[in-house]
Every structure is written in structure tokens, then in C-alpha cells.
Design a protein around this nucleic acid. Structure first.
Length: 300
DNA sequence: CGCCAGGTTAGAG
DNA sequence: CTCTAACATGGC
């Protein structure tokens, strides 16, 4: 059971895959024989999908991703659902040509868009996961954030075995809402991270926040709504909105990665202030999320 | 060893 | 409103 999802020419499966290969501690997807596998929870059963680049397309100026369900058969409705999922995951419906035109002569991004042509925002289709992951990444290095996530997913997520290998799904809000410090501190969460994580679990479990409601809001309203959760500041809210809903103008101005990227690209001694970043980003208006993506990609 | 890390909050001034 | 300490510990 497999089918092909068409992708625009400005799409590089390899670059997006390289992003997904950042950490050996990632449990929510896995590469087997160069193919990307991920466990999805459908209403009635787990579905393990495998993705790889389509190579024998009829049209040469076309690209595509092959989707296979490994553990079950898929009905036509589910096929549509899967295609939608993958299109969102790799942001395939965004035409990034206008972004490339806008920054083709840009001092910071001009070279990067050539070097990383076709690189797209690899999204996090689930808002809850997006927010928790952002909290885990607050104020610590990424390697340690992945360690925390690995323990968190292993302990509180669900898993499904296929070919002798476990595939994991992110913990559900209902489970997370019932956790306490006693569950999370042993995983080396700080008290702050523990509190924030559970807080987000409760907000989603009690449906104070729903992905559905957020999806129809303006960036500003969505951001303000998310920031009502303790532990979700401007950085976290913008990160989640950029990754989950792909607002093209969302970006975390406080992000130390952005700051370091700018410092290095400008060969400057000091990092820019948040205000300087906001001012500089005015020239990327409408494409702040993609500017952020390429700045992150420039980091060593 | 020392500094920094995909920040946020509460409390002081 | 703005500024600052505290958070906690890994990675290099």
C-alpha cells in the first residue's frame, strides 16, 4: 500500500531529512535504510508510515514523496488524511519562491538560500507536542533537551513494535495532566520545566486550549492565548505557532540561535539585542519564519 | 573549571 | 515599566 505525494521543485527531501536526523536520541521517528518511519495514532489503531523520495516520476521537473503504511491497509479517506499530514509536516503547500526572490541579495540570507535550496520548515503538526518540546528546550542546550525528551517519551508515551523495533508516540495531554513533580524530577527536569509541562498538559486535557480553536486565530490572538499558560512566553508561543500552524510571520525574537547566527554571519563580536533582531527582521516581513529557519541552518 | 545553552517568571526598584 | 535573580544541569 503506497502512494506518491507531489512536492514542488523547491523542496529537498534530503535537507529536511537532515534536520530530522539531528539527534540520535529522537524516538518519534526513525530512519531505516534511508527511509523515514513514523508512528501515527489513528482513531482506531496505530499506523506506522514510511516516507522516501520518489525517484522515477514521469515529469522530470516534478518531485514527490512516497508514503507507505507498513503495518496496516489504508482506506481512501485515510489516504487523504495521510497526504494532508505529510504536506503539513514538510510545509509543501507554501510557495517559497517569493521568499527566495525577496532575500536573493540579502547580506545574511542570500548565500544560505542557495546553499540550502529546498529546505523547508519541518513542522510539528501537533500543537501540544510542539509546546512541550519548546518548554524542554528552554534555556538549555539542545543535546540535553533531547535527553529529557527521550526519557519523557520513553516513560510516558505509547509504543508500538514492528520488526522487533519500538516506535513511539508522544505522551497524550491526559497522561501529562496527571503527572507530578515526583514523576518528572527524576528525569532531570527542573522544577520549572516540570511545572510548565504539567500546566500545558492540563490546559489541553481540560480543553482550555484546543488546536482547533487556535487554528482559526490571527497570529497575535493565538500568541496571546498561548501566553496565558504559565511557562509559555513569547519565544515558546512563536516557536510553536511557526512549527504547528506555519504562520509565515511568526518567529522567536529572543532565540539565542538566531542571535548567534546573526553574530557569526555579520562577523560581529557581540550578539544582537532582541530589539536589534526585530529591527533587522523588518526586511523579511511576511517571511520571518523562513528567515529564522535559514539562520538556524547556518549554525555550525 | 567556567561559560553558555532553541527562556520564563516573580519580585524588587 | 524595567531590571534582575533564580532556575538546574549537561556539553564542550
Amino acid at each position: 500500500m503506497e502512494f506518491v505525494v507531489a512536492a514542488p521543485l523547491e523542496f529537498s527531501f534530503d535537507l529536511c531529512a537532515s534536520f530530522l536526523k539531528r539527534s540520535p536520541r529522537e524516538l518519534l521517528h526513525r530512519f531505516e535504510h534511508g527511509r523515514l518511519r513514523k508512528l501515527l495514532q489513528f482513531k482506531d489503531r496505530p499506523v506506522l508510515i514510511e516516507l522516501y523520495e520518489a525517484t522515477d516520476l514521469v515529469a522530470p521537473a516534478q518531485r514527490g514523496i512516497v508514503i507507505r503504511a507498513l503495518n496496516t491497509t489504508i482506506n481512501p479517506d485515510e489516504q487523504i488524511q495521510l497526504e494532508k499530514y505529510v504536506r503539513e509536516w514538510f510545509d509543501l503547500d507554501t510557495d517559497i519562491k517569493p521568499f527566495y526572490e525577496k532575500v536573493s541579495a540579502d547580506k545574511l540570507l542570500g548565500d544560505l538560500i542557495t546553499k540550502f535550496h529546498g529546505y523547508r520548515i519541518v513542522g510539528q503538526p501537533d500543537l501540544f507536542e510542539s509546546l512541550v518540546w519548546a518548554v524542554l528546550g528552554q534555556q538549555i542546550n539542545l543535546a540535553f533537551a533531547y535527553t529529557l525528551k527521550q526519557r519523557f517519551v520513553q516513560q510516558f508515551g505509547t509504543s508500538y513494535e514492528f520488526e522487533g523495533q519500538p516506535y513511539y508516540a508522544f505522551p497524550s495531554p491526559d497522561v501529562v495532566a496527571r503527572l507530578t513533580d515526583a514523576d518528572l524530577l527524576p528525569l532531570q527536569f527542573s522544577r520549572q520545566k516540570s511545572k510548565y509541562t504539567i500546566e500545558i498538559g492540563k490546559a489541553f486535557s481540560e480543553r482550555t486550549i484546543t488546536q482547533e480553536a487556535l487554528s482559526s486565530m490571527s497570529l497575535e490572538d493565538a500568541r496571546d492565548t498561548l501566553m496565558q499558560i504559565k511557562g509559555v512566553g513569547n519565544w515558546t508561543a512563536n516557536y510553536a505557532l511557526m512549527k504547528t500552524f506555519r504562520y509565515k510571520d511568526a518567529f522567536p525574537a529572543e532565540d539565542v540561535g538566531i542571535h548567534n547566527a546573526i553574530r557569526l554571519l555579520k562577523n560581529s563580536k557581540r550578539k544582537p539585542t532582541v530589539e536589534e533582531v526585530r529591527r533587522l527582521f523588518r526586511r523579511y516581513k511576511g517571511w520571518e519564519a523562513y528567515a529564522t529557519l535559514y539562520l538556524w541552518k547556518s549554525l555550525p
